[in-house]
Simulated assay, not measured.
Amino acid sequence: MKGILIAGAAAVLGFSALPVWAALGGAPSWPDAPRTPGTRLMAAANNAAPYTVTTATQESGTVIHEYLDARGNVFAVSWRGPRIGSMDVLLGGYFPAWQKGLAAVQASRGGGYGPVAMRNGDLVVETGGHMGALTGRAWLPLALPQGFDASQIQ
């Protein structure tokens, strides 16, 4: 069952061996990650809500954003591109909740693949797109900074 679930997640989200820079709920991982040629890192602050967005563009063209609160903890991540890194790395300790939620969504629609919107009290994950053009975002609703709206996660 575990192998099927992991295979399902891989098919839905397009696993790759490329590095991922963030893990939900912890410190950003990109400062310690090995740099790959073509990777750009940028940061931008927002004055309305105390958060920072860092952006990494991988060689494949995939753009990964991580959203950090004032303490430097990652409260949201998003991705757009032909591939993403391993969801277990991207979601960190929230990966088991994602596996359980993905299984429930797939069971509710009788199996198959496609966009997924998984929500529980601790975690929200939305994925979509198609092969070669994947998008998604994940966030921790209880960790959003005051004044931050989830629609800002791009």
Rank of each mutant, 00 (worst) to 15 (best):
M1F: 09
G3R: 10
L5M: 14
A7M: 09
A9R: 06
V12T: 11
G14D: 02
G14R: 02
F15C: 14
A17S: 14
A17D: 15
A17R: 10
P19D: 01
P19Y: 01
V20L: 13
A22C: 09
A22R: 05
A23K: 10
L24R: 00
A27W: 11
W30V: 07
P31H: 02
R35V: 09
R35I: 09
P37H: 03
P37L: 04
P37E: 06
T39D: 13
L41Y: 11
L41W: 10
M42V: 14
A43V: 08
A44R: 13
N47H: 12
A48T: 13
A48F: 07
P50K: 10
Y51F: 13
T54E: 05
T55V: 08
T55K: 08
A56M: 11
T57R: 05
Q58T: 15
E59R: 12
E59F: 11
T62F: 03
V63D: 07
I64F: 13
Y67M: 07
Y67C: 05
Y67A: 05
A70L: 07
G72H: 08
F75V: 12
A76F: 04
V77I: 02
V77H: 00
W79F: 06
R80A: 15
R80T: 15
G81Y: 07
G81S: 10
R83Q: 15
R83W: 11
G85R: 06
G85V: 04
M87H: 09
V89C: 09
L90Q: 07
Y94G: 04
Y94L: 08
P96S: 06
W98N: 11
W98L: 06
Q99H: 04
K100G: 13
K100S: 12
G101Q: 05
L102E: 03
L102T: 01
L102D: 03
A104I: 04
V105Q: 12
G112Y: 05
G112S: 07
G114A: 09
V116P: 03
M118H: 06
R119K: 14
R119S: 15
R119C: 09
N120I: 06
N120E: 07
G121M: 09
D122H: 07
E126M: 05
E126P: 07
T127S: 04
G128M: 00
G128R: 00
G129D: 00
M131E: 14
T135C: 02
G136M: 01
L142M: 12
F148W: 02
F148D: 01
D149P: 08
D149Q: 15
D149G: 13
A150N: 04
A150V: 04
A150S: 09
S151W: 04
Q152W: 12
Q152R: 14
Q154M: 14
